[in-house]
Design a protein around this nucleic acid. Structure first.
Lengths: 211, 211
DNA sequence: GTCTATACGATGATAGAC
DNA sequence: GTCTATCATCGTATAGAC
């Protein structure tokens, strides 16, 4: 007997385990056991472990990027119609908000966020090349938009500040749980909305500061 | 016959490979081959793969933390004598500067930086628990110092902003090489000094911004 | 088409004889 | 200190049952 969909169950299990333990520390046997599927089902449905990883990433990344792009283009168009420059904060928001809001869609999506955060931390990794293939166009578009909203910055400065911003973002994507000393009176389970505003406060200030 | 020091050569090789490929993707065979040592030498000198990782981390982290702490305490004392609050920028500098300056000490140290950056990106990982054991006291001290220099912030806000700052730092520690779209006219090989000031510009602005 | 059972070759970490 | 043996587990391939 096979439950709803074996392929889906494998994707879910892989997403969870890759996010939790990393790609290399996760075995196909662990995945198929969790998914209540046969070991060979992975190779049948996906071809290889690496192809499975790509399927896991793409399943959520492509739709997410559609939303981010939509929010960004709407913002740029609105600014142009008003004859104003897009605000840096809103450009960053278009990128960050849809991402972190995934957390409100349940624990599956939370696994995905952690996986991406982890991916961003592994230069030269298998996951990184998959990730970049699907992110490049949007990243370039965001860069253009930020250049528009911050005309005083050189491209060089803008690049580094965007780099720092991505560092912040990937960090909070993977470190949702406590990872270091947390003072007793600090609430680590900040609501997503507050976290987003906190993040935008911090990064916008960094992006806009004079040199 | 054993060259200068087998134990040292294993440490160097492990540092390089762990940094480059991650802990799980690195095999003991790969390490011992690189180090021109026997496979079993790892177990003889260190006990296990995990203990080797700890040795690799501790070798450089403990001295580094001594420097960071020294710079921080000197700064705090100087401020107190002058009857002033320590500046946020200088507190952050005490943490960041000694770290990034390791890059000027050659490629071995560069491997270490990448390894730590990677470690910070693996919550629940083996490396993370090792790392925290050796960082906790200094992190708490930095937190206190930042609270001193930014009396207007609640502990909650301060925590999150420090969290963001650590995210930035760990990101630039591991992504020294190109990792995403880099516009042609951007110099990715920024001198360490400039990178430090860029970083302090960005993070100090984020730490100090009003809510 | 989907899925299972099982086998293969490679590589993992470790332990014991020397 | 080294060499060699050992044993678990890895990703993958295949043959055949539903």
């Amino acid at each position: 007997m096979s439950q709803p969909d074996t392929k889906q169950r494998i994707l879910d299990a892989a997403e969870h385990l890759f996010a939790r333990n990393g790609y290399h520390a996760t075995s196909l046997r662990g995945i198929t056991t969790t998914a209540d599927a046969n070991l060979a089902a992975v190779n049948y449905h996906f071809g290889s472990k690496e192809a499975l990883l790509e399927a896991v990433i793409v399943r959520r990344l492509d739709p997410l990027n559609e939303i981010r792009r939509g929010q960004l283009e709407a913002l740029l168009q609105k600014a142009e119609l008003a004859g104003e420059l897009p605000s840096c904060r809103e450009v960053l928001r278009a990128f960050v908000e849809p991402t972190l809001r995934l957390r409100q869609q349940g624990s599956e999506a939370e696994d995905f966020i952690a996986l991406i955060g982890r991916t961003l931390a592994e230069p030269r990794g298998i996951a990184m090349s998959i990730f970049l293939r699907h992110m490049q166009p949007l990243l370039q578009r965001i860069f253009q938009a930020l250049a528009l909203s911050l005309p005083a910055l050189t491209e060089q400065d803008l690049f580094w500040r965007m780099h720092f911003t991505m560092g912040c973002l990937s960090h909070i994507m993977r470190c949702h749980e406590r990872y270091s000393m947390v003072p007793d009176n600090v609430n680590i389970d900040l609501p997503v909305d507050e976290l987003i505003e906190h993040f935008l406060d911090f990064t916008t200030a960094g992006m806009e500061v004079a040199r």
